[in-house]
Simulated assay, not measured.
Amino acid sequence: MTRKYKSPSLTVDGIVEIDGKIVLITRKNEPYKDFWAFPGGFVDYGESTECAVLRELFEETNLKTKIKGLLGVYSDPNRDPRGHTVSVVYVLEYIDGLLKSGDDAKEAGLFKIEDIKQLNLAFDHKRIFEDYLKKYK
Rank of each mutant, 00 (worst) to 15 (best):
L24N: 01
G102E: 00
D96W: 12
K4Q: 13
Y136E: 07
E130L: 10
S87D: 07
Q118T: 14
L133N: 07
G102S: 01
E93Q: 04
E130R: 04
F42N: 13
K106Q: 03
F35L: 13
G83N: 07
F38I: 09
T65P: 13
D96P: 04
L98A: 14
G20H: 03
E56C: 07
I18V: 07
L57M: 15
K134Y: 04
Y94Q: 03
P8R: 00
N78D: 15
Y132T: 02
K106Y: 02
R55V: 04
L57C: 14
G83T: 08
I25T: 14
A37V: 10
Q118H: 09
G41Q: 11
D124W: 09
A52D: 06
T85F: 12
A105E: 01
E30D: 15
K117P: 11
K21T: 06
L71I: 02
Y74R: 08
G69F: 07
I25P: 13
L92E: 06
E107A: 08
C51Q: 14
G14Y: 08
F129P: 01
T85P: 01
Y45W: 13
S9P: 00
A108M: 03
E107Q: 12
E50P: 13
F38Q: 04
N120R: 12
E47K: 07
K33T: 11
R127S: 12
D104A: 14
A52G: 08
S9D: 15
K6A: 15
R82S: 10
S48H: 05
A108W: 04
H125I: 07
S9L: 15
D76M: 09
V73L: 10
F58R: 15
K117G: 08
K6Q: 14
E50D: 14
E47A: 09
V86I: 06
V86K: 03
E17T: 09
T65L: 12
D80T: 08
V86C: 03
F129L: 09
Y45D: 14
F58V: 08
G20A: 05
G72T: 06
F123G: 02
K100I: 00
